[in-house]
Design a binder for these strands. Sequence first.
DNA 1: TATTGTTATACTCTATAACTATA
DNA 2: TATAGTTATAGAGTATAACAATA
Lengths: 162, 162
Amino acid sequence: MNTVDLETRLRTGHPQELRLWLRLLTLTQLIERDLRTHLREQFDTTLARFDLMAQLERVPEGLRMSDLSRRMMVTGGNVTSLTDQLVAEKLVERVAVPEDRRARRVRLTPEGRKHFSAMAIMHEDWIVESFGILDPSEMNTLHDILGKVKHRLLERSTLEIP
Amino acid sequence: MNTVDLETRLRTGHPQELRLWLRLLTLTQLIERDLRTHLREQFDTTLARFDLMAQLERVPEGLRMSDLSRRMMVTGGNVTSLTDQLVAEKLVERVAVPEDRRARRVRLTPEGRKHFSAMAIMHEDWIVESFGILDPSEMNTLHDILGKVKHRLLERSTLEIP
DNA sequence: TATTGTTATACTCTATAACTATA
DNA sequence: TATAGTTATAGAGTATAACAATA
């Protein structure tokens, strides 16, 4: 790909925040595209399905549809659709919730867990490779500063909900 | 490929790069969703159309379809489609390129320029608001560190093109 | 009545590939 | 032959709204 990109149009006169945002957006798009390609070519899956499985990975008993929806920040209908696909692939299963007969929990099958582990290792490698130019202190700094922005945005949207 | 056994790898916890990536992705998604909502509600447009107009803003004579494609990092068919929409709204226009009768240049119409200015002001405000919690030196640091990663990724993908 | 999850639908964004008209 | 742009199509991702079952 060429080095001309979204940022090119910016010269002077734009606030620092805007330059920062465009850099953030460009970088995220670059990495995300890479990940999608890798996931499709090597595991015939998508980022959304991978993310759903990642949510389930450390919760052996599974998560409710509503939990998945909240954690993945997408609406319920989408979680149903993604779950249907993964059920068809026998990678996750829906189980009843005794306390609430409306709800269902979704959890990885043994096969799904195994499959996810293989994907996760590759995924980590791709990510490590992407950020490989940074030293640990730079990564820490980045993580912390991004955290400040993220937490403020989350606070704000929570306040707007009522 | 990786021959480290699955369990060993999983027990060591997630690398710093992965935590960093998830934070970057979440934050970008939060801001992007916000922007899309604002652009739809207040200007009845999309981020892709906004981006296309932003590319044209500082190039009064316009850009070729191929330039737009490269700068926006999307394939040509998409640029044609986005341009069609903006032409229908009378915000951009296609003009002939005398030196090459296959090519066309796309440029903002006077109306498009005026409309874009209004959007750009609001857009900047939303972005400034999003990053408002950071002080200038933090923004600088962020910008620089992100730049290192971005430029490395771009170099890498450029090398892969031939 | 409110909530959990499902179904149905529609739109945006994107890639791929076949096509045309020039070069 | 190669390039610029278009057309057609498909799939991912998402939101909205109406709905059924249960609380």
